[in-house]
Simulated assay, not measured.
Amino acid sequence: MEEIEPSQIYLKGYNAGYMLNKYEPKLLSQILANENRHHEFIKALYDGGKQWQKEKMVEEMSRGVNKNRGQSIE
Rank of each mutant, 00 (worst) to 15 (best):
K56S: 04
E55Q: 14
L45M: 09
L45R: 09
A33E: 07
M1I: 08
Q71T: 08
G64I: 02
G70P: 01
S29A: 09
I4M: 10
N15F: 01
E74Y: 09
K22R: 13
P25Y: 06
M61N: 08
K26L: 13
K50S: 09
I4Y: 15
G17N: 04
N66V: 03
G48V: 09
G49T: 04
G13Q: 02
K50A: 11
W52C: 01
L32G: 01
V58G: 04
K54F: 05
S62T: 10
G13R: 03
Y10N: 08
Y23P: 03
E60L: 07
Q51F: 15
V58M: 12
K43C: 07
R37T: 13
I4E: 14
S7V: 06
G13N: 01
M19F: 14
Y18H: 06
K26H: 13
I9R: 11
N68H: 04
L20H: 05
Y23F: 11
W52I: 00
E60A: 08
H39M: 12
E74F: 10
N34V: 09
N21G: 05
E74M: 09
R69I: 02
N36M: 08
E59P: 00
I4N: 11
Q53I: 02
R37L: 10
N36L: 08
G70Y: 10
K22C: 10
P25Q: 06
K43I: 07
R63F: 00
W52D: 02
G49Y: 04
G13M: 02
K43R: 13
Y46A: 13
M61L: 15
A16C: 04
G64S: 13
S62R: 07
E74W: 08
Q51V: 14
V65N: 03
E40T: 04
S72Q: 10
